Simulated scan of single mutants.
Amino acid sequence: MAAFRGPKVWLWRWRRNPLRRRSDRLEAWVVLAAWTFTVLGGVVTGLLATRSVEHNLDRQRVEWRPVVAQLTKNAPGTTAPSASGSERVWAEVRWTGTDGSAHTGQTRVVPASTVGTPVTVWTDADGRMVTKPATRSEAELRSSLIGVLVGVTAAGVPFLGGRLARGRLERRRMDEWDQEWERVGPLWGRKTW
């Protein structure tokens, strides 16, 4: 099949050619714009998202603090060691914020812990309980993955837009070919002798 196509000519839509149609030039510009916006938009958006997530996670590492809290009720469960040794249960804890106000919340603790057992929880600047902040390497991995996901998603918009535009141009070109063939096709059936 490739033998019938002839040699591949690079940038054929941009070269001077008396057979080049207006739709070929328009398609060349659509392809150029779509690829430019796809590549640049994806890269720039991905980098901005990565930087934003990194900044947010760095801020959390700086602002969030560990606080010692005490259990307010006995934790459910038994003291028998589990097979994995990492089993935790939910229990209510109380801690004092930096402003001196009392706070309560729920966190995971060792099963069968008694009232008053100290537990380390993490709080934000307002004294609300939060998860432990991501380490530097975890933050880099998270921000990279989110940046790639956002970049690919952002790149998909102009790519799909370009594909749709090219599809419409192709349908229009085929309709023009049909009209030309309806006009010229019947002339081929006549005998000229």
Rank of each mutant, 00 (worst) to 15 (best):
L164P: 04
D58Y: 05
R128T: 10
R20P: 03
D24W: 02
T78R: 09
A165V: 13
S137D: 14
A33K: 03
G167K: 06
R172F: 08
M174N: 15
T38W: 01
P158C: 04
A91H: 02
K191C: 09
R173K: 09
E140L: 15
P158V: 10
T107A: 00
A34F: 02
F4W: 14
L32H: 04
N17I: 08
L57N: 03
L47P: 04
G41V: 10
H103P: 00
E176W: 08
G156M: 09
A91S: 13
A80F: 13
L26P: 04
V150L: 01
R190N: 08
R173S: 12
E87P: 03
V109D: 01
R65P: 01
G167I: 07
V184Q: 11
W10S: 14
P133K: 06
T117W: 00
D99F: 01
G189Q: 13
L11W: 15
G105Y: 01
T131Y: 09
K132S: 10
R190H: 12
A83K: 11
Q60W: 03
V44Q: 05
E92V: 06
A102Q: 10
R171T: 14
R20L: 14
S23G: 04
R61Q: 08
W14F: 12
K73N: 15
A2G: 09
G85V: 07
P186F: 05
R142L: 15
A2R: 11
R22Q: 06
